[in-house]
């Protein structure tokens, strides 16, 4: 299957959604240039979708191993708080970023060890950090909203590079780097194989334990990046609200991307499109001017429609219908 046929459903969903939003808000696709930067609703989607897109990259791999990572929202809060604290205690930009990334990696390692070594089910294992992580973040910020004024750090959240918002570059580069890393090496195959049948893979010599840990660490790193972007954008670390419920959007993005929760075959590009679909819905509802109390209901309804249209069952029915409407050449099997 080529990449294009794989992501066709997501592309179609996105296009249909854009058409729908444009009905209510005709200027949705308009992009202007002002002061060396592109501005417009689409650019806004590309920027504000950054946290979920980043989380979706890591989540895709976790789900490919038949796992789930519920803790990414909490990890965002921890890493945002760690970065903000480091910056405000005068540590400098690069060390502060490294501290935040390290925090994400450690959090992922914790999850990975619980899942791969201790053998706790991923849902439960990451639930622990989901609950605990926000507490850790509150301890770091001592319950306050930690604000800072470091222009370099703030640039990561609201700066512009070559016309595009910096957060957009961050998710594009992250997704491209991870995508290339798994497809240009054998990692993708090994991850899929562990997701489908860990026992058989281990028997064939695949280091399933290490691979699982690595995948959760990567998810932690992606969450750290998302936390950095969000903290930089609002110039402050809010342990209570940073990344709140975003784990659910990330999982949704992966599912809209057509990746099975039962593990196996995955597509990072499709998950990214899923994240953009979610963000387009969010931005579109705002722009279309619906009262905000409708937001969640409309979002849920749209997501449901997309998922129903993508479901294998509907796809099978659709294929059946198509086949029955066309004279089918009798195929002879190879023997």
């Amino acid at each position: 299957m080529t990449l294009l046929t794989r992501i066709a459903p997501q592309l179609i969903a996105l296009a249909a959604l854009i058409a729908l939003v444009s009905l209510f808000f005709p200027g949705f696709l308009a992009v202007d240039v002002s002061g060396g930067r592109l501005v417009g609703p689409v650019i806004d989607v590309l920027k504000r979708g950054a946290p979920v897109a980043l989380l979706a990259v890591g989540m895709t791999l976790v789900i490919a191993t038949r796992g789930i990572d519920l803790s990414v929202g909490a990890i965002m809060a921890i890493c945002g708080a760690a970065a903000a604290l480091s910056i405000s205690s005068g540590l400098g930009l690069v060390p502060a970023l490294l501290v935040a990334l390290a925090a994400g990696a450690v959090a992922g390692l914790w999850n990975g060890v619980l899942v791969a070594v201790v053998g706790i089910q991923p849902f439960v294992a990451t639930l622990i950090l989901m609950t605990m992580g926000r507490g850790v973040a509150q301890l770091i910020t001592e319950g306050r909203i930690l604000t800072f004024s470091d222009p370099g750090f703030a640039w990561l959240g609201s700066g512009v590079l070559l016309g595009l918002p910096v957060p957009t570059w961050i998710w594009i580069l992250t997704a491209a780097a991870v995508g290339l890393a798994v497809r240009r090496t054998a990692l993708g195959l090994l991850i899929e194989s562990v997701g489908v049948n860990r026992r058989a893979s281990a028997l064939a010599g695949v280091n399933a334990t290490l691979l699982l840990i690595a995948v959760y660490v990567l998810s932690g790193l992606c969450a750290a990046l998302a936390g950095i972007v969000e903290t930089a954008d609002i110039r402050g670390a809010d342990a209570n609200n940073a990344g709140l419920w975003l784990e659910l959007d990330a999982i949704l993005a992966v599912v809209i991307g057509g990746n099975s929760l039962m593990g196996g075959r995955f597509s990072i590009v499709a998950s990214i499109l899923g994240a953009l679909i979610i963000q387009t819905i969010g931005t579109g509802i705002l722009l279309a001017g619906f009262p905000s109390e409708y937001n969640l209901v409309i979002k849920a309804a749209l997501v449901l429609i997309i998922l129903v249209l993508q479901s294998p069952r509907i796809a099978a029915e659709w294929n059946l219908w198509r086949e029955s409407h066309r004279v089918q050449p009798r195929e002879r099997r190879r023997t």
Binding site: T185, A186, L189, L190, S201, A204, G205, V206, N207
Partner: peptide, 14 residues
């Protein structure tokens, strides 16, 4: 090729 690939290591795809 799974076993062969696992033995070669992830960084050297067949």
């Amino acid at each position: 090729i799974l076993g062969l690939q696992a033995r070669r290591g992830w960084s050297r795809p067949i």
